[in-house]
């Protein structure tokens, strides 16, 4: 056990990489989640179809298959990605698809009367979205987003299979150097667990902030409906 703990610089470096990948992946996932999620609430069939295609495709592929495809297959037709770019892209696009479903469910769950009131008050479409619909939808999005964030963090362990030095990758090296298999894996499992708990605390804090901003507790049933429509793995 002490051998493993002596290798703490390596563990720390791996943890830092894991955290970075989680942050990059989440930042990237947010973009398609919002764009395609809002596309899914459009009244034009063609725009909604765009949402369906993106969601079904990226929710249907396995993250690891996508990662291997970007990393091993695409260079052969001339697109070369660095390992980190391939990892972040595949994680972000995959989680983004689940996120798009959450966004769509949350926006649709905002009561229709809110929209009608905004129209009656002569808000422009932008104002309706930014000042009325989205702030209320965000409160419904946060809990399922928290679950997705933890899924994403767990997904980053896959990057060790395409040679990125994350926590799992470093654990394999420590294991090879010390022969302490059980201790190494136990230590990193605990580190992953700790990261997950911290992410959960952060999301809870954000939920409370948003609730206070809106001056209310969100309707529990609507939140459940939004998460149920969204994530398979929520």
């Amino acid at each position: 056990m002490s051998d493993v703990l002596d290798a703490y610089p390596q563990l720390l470096r791996g943890t830092w990489t894991t955290v970075q990948l989680t942050v990059y992946g989440a930042a990237l996932a947010l973009v398609p989640a919002l764009v395609f999620g809002l596309a899914g609430t459009s009244r034009h069939t063609a725009v909604r179809a765009l949402n369906r295609v993106y969601v079904e495709f990226f929710r249907g592929t396995a993250t690891l298959v996508l990662m291997y495809w970007l990393f091993y297959a695409l260079p052969l037709v001339g697109f070369r990605f660095t390992p980190v770019a391939a990892a972040v892209l595949s994680l972000g696009l995959n989680v983004g698809a689940y996120g798009a479903e959450v966004v769509r469910g949350a926006v649709n769950a905002v009561p229709r009367a809110q929209y009608e009131a905004a129209v009656a008050l002569n808000f422009t479409p932008w104002q309706r979205m930014l000042r009325v619909t989205l702030p209320q939808a965000v409160a419904l999005m946060l809990p399922p987003f928290g679950n997705l964030l933890i899924e994403l963090m767990k997904g980053t362990a896959l990057v060790s299979l395409i040679t990125i030095g994350d926590l799992t990758f470093n654990a394999q090296r420590i294991r090879a150097a010390t022969g302490e298999t059980a201790a190494t894996f136990l230590v990193i499992l605990v580190v992953y667990f700790a990261i997950a708990q911290m992410l959960q605390l952060a999301v809870r804090y954000a939920e409370r902030r948003v609730d206070r901003m809106l001056g209310r507790r969100p309707d529990r049933r609507a939140a459940a409906a939004a998460s149920g429509a969204g994530a398979v793995k929520a």
Partner: peptide, 11 residues
């Protein structure tokens, strides 16, 4: 639930 499946498989 909150630790990666990959590491559990290794374990």
């Amino acid at each position: 639930r909150s630790t990666p499946l990959l590491v559990q498989l290794f374990f």
